[in-house]
């Protein structure tokens, strides 16, 4: 019931974490305005044309006003056809192009001073790299609020698509290509994104969280993150982690993670696990992920670490502390 109630309020309130009609950035706002303009105009057109059909088929024949003189028809019919079939669409689309294309232009305008963040799509997680090369994270994008950032998007495997609906339109992430997306949040806050190009088994569970911080805070976050040295766990735990996890998962200063799994350096600070499969705020979420990830996100690329519960628990406890 709470689901239905929440849904109803979202419906009537036009709100939602992923709602295009609930914009929180200039690009999304521009598009939302275009949407409302179009739906109102086209709604009127649909209504008018439907009423014409109903009138012609049901009302007019009974009113006895049937016209049969060829001369009258020869004058009137072209007016219908040219007016409704040529002029109406032509004028509508010209106006749409005149309004819409420059809006699109503005959304993609260059921003030479903007921060550039590289995002790479993987099956089924997001790799995020900041300009210095040292700050690498996954599934959680932190950006400054109130100014544009430029994302450079590509993919390590199949085609994905980067989309944070409340902020901007989407851009595909294609292997071998680097695409560019301009992203800006009006206000600080938490936003959500979702992969929107079908990328295989767990395309449905490839969520992204975006955190916009006001500028001085963002710079502080970035420098804290750059200087962060993850604490080392007990040597036994570290050995097990390196053996079973370290090939894929980089933890800055401790493991290299060259086989290309998500970087775990700041995993304790991320809102979700498994790209939105579990929320970190759930107690024991990390341990649950380690134990049940194959059931929670079937066919995901992570190998199940063959460790008993106690040792998994140690690893999980250590990972939870990785908060810059």
């Amino acid at each position: 019931m709470t689901g239905i109630a929440a849904g109803l309020s979202a419906l009537t309130g036009c709100r939602g974490e992923l709602a295009i009609v609930d914009p929180a950035g200039p690009a999304a706002r521009s598009i939302s305005l275009l949407w409302w303009g179009m739906v109102i105009w086209f709604g009127l057109v649909l209504l008018a044309v439907t009423l014409l059909w109903i009138y012609s088929v049901h009302v007019r024949p009974r009113s006895g006003r049937a016209v049969t003189e060829p001369a009258v028809i020869a004058r009137g019919a072209p007016r219908w056809i040219v007016g409704g079939g040529v002029l109406l669409p032509l004028i509508t689309v010209t106006i749409l192009l005149l309004l819409g294309l420059p809006a699109g232009h503005r959304m993609a305008a260059p921003a030479p001073d903007a921060l550039v963040i590289e995002v790479t799509g993987h099956q089924w997680w997001w790799e995020i790299r900041y300009p210095d090369g040292e700050v690498i994270t996954a599934n959680h994008l932190v950006m400054p609020a109130g100014e544009p950032v430029i994302l450079r998007l590509t993919s390590a495997d199949v085609i994905h698509s980067f989309w944070v609906p409340r902020l901007a339109g989407k851009m595909d992430m294609i292997p071998g290509h680097t695409n560019r997306l301009r992203l800006e949040a009006d206000q600080p806050g938490l936003y959500r994104g979702q992969c929107s190009e079908f990328c295989g088994a767990q395309h449905a569970r490839m969520l992204l969280t975006v955190e916009a911080l006001p500028e001085p805070e963002f710079s502080r976050w970035l420098s804290r993150r750059q200087q962060f040295l993850p604490p080392s766990p007990a040597s036994k735990t570290l050995a097990q982690f390196s053996t079973h996890c370290g090939d894929c998962h980089r933890v800055s200063g401790l493991t290299r993670g060259l086989s290309g799994g998500p970087d775990l350096t700041d995993i304790g600070a991320r809102p979700t696990l498994g790209a939105g499969t579990l929320t970190m705020s759930e107690p024991g979420a990390l341990l649950r992920w380690l134990q049940e990830h194959r059931r929670l996100k079937p066919d995901n690329r992570m190998v199940a670490p063959p460790l008993p519960a106690a040792e998994l628990s140690d690893i999980a406890a250590w990972l939870e502390q990785l908060v810059p």
Binding site: L90, V93, T94, L97, L98, L101, P102, G104, H105, A108, A109, P110, N179, R180
Partner: peptide, 19 residues
């Protein structure tokens, strides 16, 4: 001709190579 005109109108609305 209309189609040509409408499409070429876009030359005035978009700079060519921005992505």
């Amino acid at each position: 001709a209309l189609a040509t005109g409408l499409v070429s109108l876009t030359l005035l609305l978009s700079a060519p190579c921005l992505q």
